[in-house]
Design a protein around this nucleic acid. Sequence first.
RNA 1: GGUCUGGUAGUUCAGCUGGUUAGAAUGUCGGCCUGUCACGCCGAAGGUCGCGGGUUCGAGUCCCGUCCAGACCGCCA
Length: 589
Amino acid sequence: MYRTHTCGELRINHVNETVTLSGWVQKIRNLGGMTFIDLRDRYGITQLVFNSETHQELCNQARELGREYVIQIEGNVAERSNKNTKIPTGEIEILVDQFTILNSSELPPFTIEDDTDGGDELRMKYRYLDLRRNMVRKNLELRHRMGFEVRNYLNSQNFIETETPVLIKSTPEGARDFVVPSRMQPGQFYALPQSPQVFKQLLMVAGFDRYFQIVKCFRDEDLRADRQPEFTQIDCEMSFVDQEDILNTFEGLAKHLFKTLRDVEIEGDFPRLSYEDAMKYYGSDKPDVRFGMKFVELSDLVKESGFKIFDEAEYVGGICAEGCAGYTRKQLDKLTDFVKKPQIGATGLIYIKYNTDGTVKSSVDKFFSSEKLLEICGSANAKPGDLVLILAGVRKKTLTALCELRLEMGEQLGLRDKNKFSPLWVVDFPLLEWDEDAQRFFAMHHPFTSPKKEDIHLLDEAPGKVRANAYDLVINGVEIGGGSIRIFNDELQQKMFSVLGFSPEEAEEQFGFLMNAFKYGAPPHGGVAFGFDRWVSLFAGIDSIRDVIAFPKNNAGRDVMIDSPSQVSSEQLEELNLALKLKEAALNK
RNA sequence: GGUCUGGUAGUUCAGCUGGUUAGAAUGUCGGCCUGUCACGCCGAAGGUCGCGGGUUCGAGUCCCGUCCAGACCGCCA
């Protein structure tokens, strides 16, 4: 038997028991006549003592140990004379009688501690060592518990977890597919699913009624801190539901997860915000509503002042930063630089300081009277002591920039507390969005999303105005998930394909199986999918999803530990009927 | 595809306008130490300054290219 207890469970009431422990050597403190070793496993740390007076030989052996050696010890649990209140096992220690080295270890390239000295690159290369660290392991334990609670809740609501295939078919629209060559069908390829979308709809046709799956999805697009080429979704679909039923069901899931994983009670219904209002008040379809600072449109108020920037702007909007009237020139310059960064793209920043004495000071004093500036402050709901920040320009771009500025101010003012959670549903998304390059409409959500009944008549005359039965769950400015009520009528689906520019033949070739299925009594249905990794990282209070994934890939889609992707042998290529034709840039690598 | 930041000891970093032998902390190794738990004290080893080219009497430092890593824009229904 390798162990009778784990390294995290022994307490004062175990004193005098003889125990066997196995684990890794975390730290050796050699005091000469006496040596202490911290023995670590997943469950905790237990201190071992070697005393040269009573166990000279053992003491000598203990000195031979190194960090991360795997050892097994037998000894007696004793009460410490000097207790350590910082750890749960700190009242006891093990007087070791014998020990065995189960495995030696090379010196690890970084220290296995909470505050490691390892940089990201090293930690990824030696991920199995990084995973020994509390921080990373705790994230994965949270992930485990969350998966468990998702299953618990959805099971209690009669959902059936059903697996869907991973080798499927490439379709146009949406993200770039990962493709897998078929050996048995020369020249043909499978695609890895971007989501199990059509399968879950087919399960509804099959009468499964309530489906879910915690499932890997794949998208071959460029990565970010919160985007991996393979990621996990909580994928769900329900029959005989309208939007209201879905929002209620999954609001229930969200509340259950908040309660069980973070012990947070979310009072009342999640607020709902139309896409239009989200853009108008926050410049984003995933607003962070932990704080206010809503946009105020000032376009009409500031026109014809002779200030060219405002006069020529399609949109002028501002936010009110509470209590910031005291900002120095330096701070304001820094904010100006911030909004002028190419990624944000504003041309400049206008401010009005509403001083505590009731006076105003602005960067556009030349063009506006004090009365006018006060009026602007009034519309922006500013009170003495506040600072109004204004951007102007093309509507869409300015809203986006103002969104970034708002988030930056929220950050500076400490309004984005990681332990505060503000969920909301963003609803009434547009069904379609116009693509300038392709000169056609694309489905904003996906081609199976149903238009709002009252907007269907607009499909021909003004497709861009049609709203969809689509919704996103947004928490703290992070898009946690989204979904829609689907089209379940063959005719409407064909109509949708035609608006998207598919010929009937193309639609038949790509999605014939789905439309065919819809001919056999498809129930009304709809669903939602949540980004599991993002949700876990939100609960863990971290910004990157990499640390809630056991073996993530880097920002170039590379696994630096196993060194993938990699080349395959010419025999493998031959077998797959593939020949490589590399571009020059690829050859240089 | 683009923008930005970084790459110096095992590790995390410092290294100014180019100028003597490239430093600190930590880790490692050796010695001392019987109550440590960030143990302490003494000592030692440890460097292709990512790689290639250029400018210069002289390059870790400046320039060009390139590779790697990270953040972001485009992209991601």
